[in-house]
Every structure is written in structure tokens, then in C-alpha cells.
């Protein structure tokens, strides 16, 4: 694959559920190393779009390209194998397993075994150590009980980080975050922002669905706005939020979040 050209490209992607058009004719490109935000009011089709990209749904129409290769309708685990991973908006940990064992699962996947997991760490150490390394990087204090606690007993802030950890363990090229900031306190978000920036600096392309615009704009240089399943506009955060249709659809009359 050449270094030029988009890493991820959506061409006229539509997803219909019966008569409901959850996503309609959405196209955009993501360049390697970029952080792109996807915004839109509730029900505008953001998560459905993610599901279409990651293979959890097969788009009704349109194409999803990864490095120019058609991955439309590929099963979810194959998409993850290629290096596109996603977090879930509603966290999906393995409740009864200790937190660090949650990361051992993706470390067992063929991709992690091939690439050595996050930054190739697994080529040398065993999986438990690599899992603890990743968790430490994500703010789980290594010498505390936290990484060894059953995931089901962890508070939301840690679970969000655990979701990120599960993705990073695969050593992905593209990380898709489905509202990682939601449900977190201001201070928790403040500590996540530099973390996401750091992950991006290590070469990951990041796609972020977000409602918390102020925090999103601290990391995303480009934003795609959706409303009723359609793309309204895309561009730098200032332009997008200034766009009259975005104001109308998403921000309403409020100026909050700009």
C-alpha cells in the first residue's frame, strides 16, 4: 500500500432498516494519521455509520474502502483483523474477568499474534505482561489492585479506558471511538484528551463520534456533521460549527459547545 491516498474512504454509504433511512448517501475520506470527528444530534446515524464501517452491519448501498481495498460487508472480525477497531458506546467488558485479562483476549487474536500487539510489545513478553503494560499506559496504576479487579466492578472512567485498551491491544491502524467522553466527568475527560492525542501521535488514525464538542475540537482537526443520516458538511471545526445547517440541526439556537 502506498503512503498516499486515504486510509479509509466511504462512498455513498446508505443503511436502511425497512423504511427507516438511518444513513443516507454518506461519503468522506480519512487521511492516514488524521483525527476526524463525526458529530450530529441523537439519532443522526453516527453509530450506524460506525457499524457499517466495522462490519457489524452490511450497508444497503455504497462502498467502504480501506487503503483502497473494498471491505464492504466483510465480517466484523475480519475488519478488525485488517486493523480497524472500535470502542462501543455502551461499554462491553468481560465482566467476570480481571481487567487485564480483558486485554489478553484481543492479544490472542491472529492480528495481535502477527504484529505483537500494541506497538509490537508482545513479541517479547507474555500476554499478561503486555496487557498490564497497555493498561498502565492508559492510567491503570500497575501496583494497585485495579488492573486485577473483575472488570464488572470498575467505575465508568476505567471501563472507557478498558475499551480503548481492548482496541489498542490489536495494534490497529484505525481506531474508531464511539462517544468515549460520554458519561465522564469534566476532569476525567480532561485526562483522556491528552491520552487520545498521544495515541494519535504514535501513528494511529482516529475517528471519533462525539457529543462533547469542546473536548472533541481539542483533538480533531476535521469534522464531519450528520443530520438525519445525511452528511451536511465537513471541514475544520470552526467552519463546521459556523455552518447554518449544522447550527439549525445540531446546535439549535444554543451557542453552547462552540
Amino acid at each position: 500500500m502506498s503512503g498516499t491516498g486515504p486510509i479509509l474512504e466511504l462512498r455513498n454509504v446508505s443503511m436502511h432498516f425497512g423504511g427507516i433511512r438511518a444513513v443516507e448517501n454518506v461519503s468522506f475520506q480519512v487521511e492516514p494519521g488524521e483525527v476526524v470527528g463525526i458529530i450530529g444530534p441523537n439519532g443522526s446515524g453516527k453509530t450506524t455509520l460506525i457499524n457499517c464501517i466495522t462490519g457489524f452491519l452490511k450497508p444497503t448501498r455504497g462502498k467502504v474502502l480501506f487503503h483502497g481495498r473494498d471491505i464492504t460487508g466483510m465480517p466484523a472480525h475480519k475488519v478488525a483483523q485488517l486493523g480497524i477497531t472500535r470502542t462501543f458506546q455502551i461499554m462491553r467488558p468481560y465482566h467476570s474477568l480481571p481487567a487485564y485479562k480483558n486485554l489478553v483476549v484481543p492479544l490472542c487474536s491472529p492480528r495481535a499474534r502477527r504484529t505483537g500487539g500494541w506497538r509490537g510489545g508482545g513479541r517479547h513478553g507474555d500476554r499478561d505482561t503486555v496487557a498490564l503494560d497497555i493498561l498502565e499506559e492508559l492510567g491503570f496504576e500497575r501496583d494497585s489492585r485495579v488492573p486485577y479487579q473483575a472488570a464488572g466492578t470498575l467505575p465508568t472512567g476505567y471501563l472507557k479506558r478498558l475499551e480503548l485498551g481492548r482496541c489498542l491491544a490489536l495494534n490497529p491502524e484505525v481506531l474508531i471511538c464511539d462517544e468515549v467522553f460520554s458519561g465522564l466527568s469534566a476532569s476525567e475527560i480532561a485526562s483522556l484528551v491528552p491520552l487520545i492525542r498521544r495515541i494519535n501521535e504514535q501513528g494511529l488514525t482516529i475517528l471519533m463520534i462525539e457529543h462533547r464538542l469542546r473536548e472533541l475540537f481539542q483533538v480533531a482537526r476535521r469534522v464531519v456533521a450528520l443530520s438525519y443520516g445525511e452528511k451536511i458538511t465537513e471541514g475544520p471545526p470552526e467552519e463546521v460549527t459556523a455552518h447554518p445547517k449544522v447550527r439549525e440541526a445540531y446546535l439549535g439556537s444554543e451557542e453552547e459547545g462552540c
Binding site: A76, H77, Y94, S109
Partner: peptide, 24 residues
């Protein structure tokens, strides 16, 4: 073993296992 861990993970949350690149 780790292979057994994956089995338990499938029982707890198969969606997460799929997102981890493992065929459920």
C-alpha cells in the same frame, strides 16, 4: 489457558470478541 479465556469471553460478550478480530 489463554485459549480458554477467549471461550469465556465469548460467553460474556461476543460483540467485543468480534471487535477484537476473533471469529466467534
Amino acid at each position: 489457558e489463554d485459549a480458554g479465556l477467549v471461550i469465556r469471553a465469548v460467553k460474556e460478550n461476543d460483540q467485543s470478541v468480534r471487535a477484537s478480530g476473533i471469529s466467534v
